[in-house]
Computed example of a mutant assay.
Amino acid sequence: MGLNVSNRQISLELGVSEKTAQTMTEQMRTEIKNNRPKTTLSGEVEFDEVYVVSGHKGHPASVKKGRKPRRRRLKGARGRGTLEKEKPPILGMIQRGGEVVIRMLENVQQKTIRPIIEKYVAKGTTTYTDEYDIYSQLNNWGYERHSVCHSAGEYARDDDGDGFCEVHVNTMEGFWSLLRSWLRPHRGISQEKLPAYLAFFRGGTQYQKMGAWIT
């Protein structure tokens, strides 16, 4: 699992059926998700979100009634998605030099992200975001916010004049790049199972390999 091989390959190497291999890996991912250690981010924390196309693979009872069948592979709607549109957003919060927290969301609204931010990020933390307006209330929620405007071609900025561009979300965006690459071999993960995969990626071998890069 740490090598991110398929259940079929795991079944061949362990000499068990593919169904058994799937049951074993699902159980391990679920246990990791259910036993995540308490995390508090502080200091300097970057916020960003990514959208993953994810339907109800293997869960036909969860498919919305009346939805037309798909003729080809699952495609999410353009732009920012929601859980209902089968393109759930994932909120990422990464402490520079520290840990990362990622959570699948129902939608990208302030009332959705606020409880998560307040649960995992200490008050008074310096935060860095892009220009997306869901983060516009961070100052009112007790955080110091600095942002870059990607739509204007700005990706990093030096606010204090020390020659170092400290205002950016490049660390979180680099994390997303690794996550996308890690998810690709699984060829579609259902909404029901995606949180367990995210927890495994965050807390498993792949995250440990990233340690030196993050710090």
Rank of each mutant, 00 (worst) to 15 (best):
M1R: 07
L3G: 14
N4Q: 15
N4Y: 11
N7D: 06
Q9A: 12
S11I: 00
S11P: 00
S11K: 00
S17R: 01
Q22Y: 03
M28A: 15
I32R: 13
N35A: 06
N35T: 10
K38A: 06
S42R: 10
S42G: 09
V45T: 14
E46F: 00
E46Q: 09
S54Y: 11
S54L: 02
S54I: 05
H56L: 13
G58W: 05
G58I: 07
K68Y: 04
R72Y: 02
L74E: 14
G81P: 08
K87I: 01
I90W: 08
L91A: 08
M93T: 06
I94Y: 09
Q95S: 05
I102H: 03
L105P: 11
N107R: 00
P115T: 11
Y120K: 01
V121A: 15
A122G: 14
T125N: 06
Y132K: 08
Y135A: 10
S136N: 12
Y143R: 08
V148S: 05
C149W: 07
A156K: 10
D159M: 00
G161Y: 05
D162W: 00
D162R: 00
D162L: 06
H168N: 15
V169M: 03
T171S: 15
F175D: 12
S181E: 08
P185V: 01
R187E: 12
G188V: 03
Q191N: 09
Y197C: 09
A199V: 12
G204S: 08
Q208L: 01
M210D: 11
A212V: 10
